[in-house]
């Protein structure tokens, strides 16, 4: 059975009139991206990759063609529905971080939840969880002027993650960072993608990052010229791969866990540490770690309801 794409572009074009010249920023782009994929849209500046992201995020309207998100045509959404779409279905990470300057990290992270109308208590808890997941719980009281670029970008990733979106768009997230921070940010995105199975669409002009991607979409002069890589997970059994995504759990350990009756994340999260440690290939220390990780993943998924 063919999988349904999470986001799909059909003959997507965006043209601008620049004086007397017609600029084709995007020209008849067709693209299907599936749930859980780590996609890099690769191309030189001016190739139309940012335009593509604006169209995917519903921030701009295409000249022609359509964008479908889980089968829903973005062109059919009104302003209010588009806001809701951006608030709950997608997360955005920008090159310039784009944190609200006078707010603390915590406030920035819970901002999308505030717009959603989530109670203060719940959204603070949820934002703290995500900050902890990303490993920056210590800077929750800092405003962006007190943070390094790398830290700001992590806060911005936390903000994109907080609503448990289907898709996270990252537009040159490492463009303003030194190579060390850039690597950290990229690893974080990859890690989050693997842990929570959220689709990540990264826009970059840097060929060094291409190995991170499941698939790479090569864009040139507004056209998709090549798509490399395989659509992953189409044939794999989901449960096993899910357990394998836990830190320190190999293929064998995952199989052993399944045999012992711990079939998915929820089972791990709700099991006792001692019981997990009974499983072959799972030490006491590992049991503790994977249980905690599974709990975080469950919170990340269900703190907001799986969408």
């Amino acid at each position: 059975m063919a999988r349904k794409p999470v986001i799909k572009a059909v003959n997507l074009s965006k043209h601008y009139q620049m004086g007397t010249m017609l600029v084709k920023a995007l020209d008849k782009v067709n693209l299907e991206i599936y749930s859980g994929e780590f996609i890099i849209i690769f191309g030189q500046s001016g190739c139309g990759k940012s335009t593509l992201m604006s169209l995917f995020a519903g921030l701009d309207k295409p000249t022609s063609g359509e964008v479908f998100v889980r089968g829903e045509n973005l062109a059919e959404l009104n302003t209010l529905q588009l806001s809701k779409y951006r608030r709950t279905k997608i997360g955005m990470v920008f090159q310039q971080y784009n944190l609200v300057p006078n707010m603390t990290s915590l406030e920035n992270v819970y901002l999308p939840l505030a717009f959603e109308g989530i109670s203060r208590r719940r959204r603070i808890k949820r934002a703290r969880n995500v900050l902890e997941l990303i490993g920056i719980a210590d800077i929750e009281r800092h405003t962006s002027s007190e943070l390094s670029g790398g830290q700001q970008q992590r806060v911005s990733i936390a903000r994109a993650w907080v609503t448990s979106p289907w898709i996270v768009f990252a537009d040159e997230p490492t463009g303003n960072l030194d190579s060390k921070s850039a690597d950290e940010v990229l690893r974080l995105l990859k890690q989050l993608n693997q842990k929570s199975k959220r689709t990540v669409i990264l826009i970059s002009h840097n060929p060094e990052y291409l190995p991170y991607a499941d698939r790479v979409v090569y864009l040139k002069d507004g056209k998709v010229i090549r798509i490399s890589g395989k659509i992953k997970g189409a044939t794999k059994r989901r449960k096993r791969s899910e357990l394998e995504s836990l830190q320190g759990v190999g293929k064998t350990a995952a199989q052993n866990l399944q045999k012992a009756g711990f079939e998915n994340m929820l089972d791990i999260a709700s099991a006792k540490e001692e019981d997990l440690a009974q499983v072959n290939g799972v030490s006491k220390k590992l049991a503790k770690l994977i249980r905690k990780e599974a709990q975080e993943i469950i919170v990340a998924r269900e703190g907001f309801g799986e969408k």
């Binding site: 302003t79 806001s83 951006r86 608030r87 955005m92 999308p112 903000r159």
Partner: peptide, 13 residues
């Protein structure tokens, strides 16, 4: 700029 950010992350008009 800030209003732009807020709208991009889902604030309504």
């Amino acid at each position: 700029h800030e209003i732009g950010i807020m709208k991009a992350i889902g604030a309504t008009n």
